[in-house]
Deep mutational scan, measured.
Amino acid sequence: ERVRARYDYEAQNEDELSFKKGDIITVLEKDDGWWKGRNGKEGLFPSNYVEELE
């Protein structure tokens, strides 16, 4: 599954994923509120910062 970033997100910890608004992220795992994904790097990000691609 792929999602698009709705906002910029700056990683707060080294296991998190940074991205810019409009970036496409491949979702690897979904957990409550935090998803694991890849966009060149791999890490956790808040699920409310992304939207599913149509």
Rank of each mutant, 00 (worst) to 15 (best):
E1R: 14
E1H: 15
E1V: 15
E1F: 14
E1Y: 12
E1W: 12
E1M: 15
R2T: 11
R2A: 09
R2E: 12
R2V: 12
R2C: 13
R2K: 14
V3F: 07
V3I: 05
V3S: 03
V3L: 04
V3N: 04
R4D: 04
R4I: 13
A5H: 03
A5T: 04
A5D: 04
A5S: 04
A5K: 03
A5C: 07
R6E: 06
R6F: 06
R6I: 15
R6H: 06
R6L: 15
R6V: 14
R6C: 13
Y7P: 05
Y7M: 15
Y7F: 14
Y7H: 12
Y7K: 12
Y7E: 12
Y7S: 10
D8Q: 03
D8W: 01
D8P: 08
D8F: 00
D8I: 00
D8T: 05
D8A: 08
D8Y: 01
Y9P: 04
Y9R: 04
Y9V: 03
Y9E: 03
Y9S: 03
Y9L: 00
Y9K: 02
Y9I: 01
E10K: 08
E10Q: 12
E10V: 13
E10D: 13
E10A: 10
E10G: 04
E10C: 14
E10P: 03
A11V: 02
A11T: 04
A11D: 02
A11G: 11
A11L: 03
A11Y: 01
A11F: 03
A11H: 01
A11W: 03
Q12S: 09
Q12A: 11
Q12F: 07
Q12N: 10
Q12G: 07
Q12I: 09
N13D: 09
N13T: 11
N13Q: 09
N13L: 06
E14I: 11
E14W: 08
E14S: 12
E14Y: 09
E14N: 11
E14M: 09
E14K: 11
E14V: 10
E14T: 10
D15M: 13
D15I: 09
D15H: 14
D15L: 14
D15E: 14
D15P: 05
D15F: 15
D15Q: 12
E16Y: 07
E16F: 05
E16K: 00
E16C: 04
E16W: 00
E16Q: 13
E16P: 00
E16A: 00
E16V: 00
E16R: 00
E16M: 02
L17N: 02
L17R: 00
L17M: 09
L17F: 02
L17D: 01
L17H: 02
L17S: 01
S18Y: 01
S18L: 00
S18D: 08
S18M: 03
S18V: 01
F19M: 08
F19I: 06
F19Y: 02
F19E: 03
F19D: 01
F19N: 03
K20E: 08
K20I: 08
K20N: 09
K20Q: 09
K20L: 10
K20C: 10
K20M: 10
K20D: 05
K20T: 08
K20S: 10
K20G: 06
K21C: 08
K21D: 05
K21R: 10
K21L: 07
K21H: 07
K21F: 04
K21S: 09
K21Y: 06
K21Q: 11
G22L: 03
G22R: 01
G22M: 04
G22H: 08
G22A: 03
D23F: 04
D23W: 01
D23K: 01
D23H: 04
D23S: 07
I24E: 06
I24K: 03
I24S: 02
I24V: 10
I24W: 10
I24P: 00
I24A: 02
I24F: 10
I24Y: 10
I24H: 05
I24R: 02
I25F: 07
I25T: 02
I25Y: 00
I25G: 01
I25C: 03
I25E: 03
T26C: 11
T26K: 07
T26R: 07
T26I: 15
T26V: 14
T26N: 08
T26Q: 12
T26S: 09
V27I: 12
V27G: 02
V27T: 03
V27A: 04
V27M: 04
V27P: 01
V27F: 01
V27E: 00
V27R: 01
L28G: 03
L28H: 04
L28R: 02
L28K: 04
L28E: 04
E29Y: 09
E29K: 09
E29H: 14
E29V: 11
E29W: 14
E29Q: 14
E29N: 12
K30W: 07
K30T: 06
K30E: 04
K30H: 06
D31L: 15
D31R: 15
D31V: 15
D32G: 15
D32E: 14
D32I: 07
D32R: 06
G33A: 10
G33Q: 12
G33M: 13
G33H: 15
G33L: 12
G33T: 11
W34C: 11
W34E: 05
W34L: 06
W35H: 05
W35Q: 05
W35E: 06
K36Y: 13
K36E: 06
K36V: 12
K36L: 15
K36A: 05
K36C: 11
K36D: 04
K36N: 06
G37Q: 00
G37E: 05
G37D: 05
G37S: 01
G37Y: 00
G37F: 00
G37W: 00
G37T: 02
G37H: 00
G37I: 00
R38K: 13
R38W: 15
R38N: 13
R38S: 14
R38Q: 12
R38M: 12
N39S: 12
N39D: 07
N39K: 11
N39Q: 09
N39R: 10
N39H: 13
G40L: 10
G40K: 09
G40V: 13
G40E: 11
G40A: 09
G40F: 09
K41W: 08
K41V: 10
K41T: 12
K41F: 11
E42V: 15
E42L: 11
E42G: 05
E42R: 05
G43L: 00
G43P: 02
G43A: 03
G43Y: 00
G43K: 01
G43N: 01
G43D: 02
L44P: 01
L44H: 11
L44Y: 15
L44V: 14
L44T: 11
L44E: 02
L44F: 15
L44R: 13
F45A: 01
F45K: 01
F45H: 00
F45G: 00
F45I: 06
P46T: 01
P46S: 05
P46R: 05
P46K: 05
P46L: 09
P46Q: 07
P46I: 03
S47V: 10
S47C: 13
S47F: 08
S47G: 09
N48K: 10
N48S: 15
N48M: 11
N48A: 14
N48T: 11
Y49V: 08
Y49T: 08
Y49M: 12
Y49H: 10
Y49C: 13
Y49D: 03
V50T: 07
V50Y: 00
V50N: 02
V50G: 03
V50Q: 02
E51Y: 03
E51K: 01
E51R: 00
E51I: 05
E51L: 01
E52R: 12
E52N: 13
E52Q: 13
E52V: 13
E52F: 12
E52T: 13
E52Y: 12
E52S: 15
E52I: 12
E52P: 15
L53F: 13
L53C: 11
E54A: 13
E54V: 13
E54S: 13
E54L: 12
E54R: 11
E54C: 13
